[in-house]
Amino acid sequence: MNPTTPATGPDVQQLLIRRHLRQGWGILLLFVVLGVVLETLLAFKASFYNRADQETWRLMWRLAHGHGTLLGLLHLAFSFSLSHLPERHFPQPARLMSFCLTAASLAIPGGFFLGGLGSNEGDPGIAIVLVPMGAVPLLAALSLLFFKLKSS
């Protein structure tokens, strides 16, 4: 798309659909790989990972894997939903929903992942604050999409 030309509704729609297809499959790939790594560490009883005092770390990374994978699927569902959204919702609020979903996809699994890295016995590291911070745009995106689809 030429950045100097104002995007039309159908252009933005196609752009967002392609973007979230890419993001969805990319995030899925990333977090499925993380899942495989975690399973491997469990399977081979990697001592640094399986120690009792690393319980919080394990939990945080499992949550990062789980949330990341589900958010990847959510991107794909969002991409599919965009094609059913009336044209009047493009570029806004569709762009806002897209931004919120992308921000949540970075903050939520990232918060769990980094919180796990900085964990201290029973508590995750301070990066865990990214999780509630990511939950806000996620809720916003889901709410917007729900109400726009309902009203259309």
Binding site: R51, A52, D53, Q54, E55, T56, E121, G122
Partner: peptide, 10 residues
């Protein structure tokens, strides 16, 4: 146990 899993396990 919840907050001190390592100490509890040891």
């Amino acid at each position: 146990k919840t907050c001190h899993p390592g100490a509890y396990a040891s």
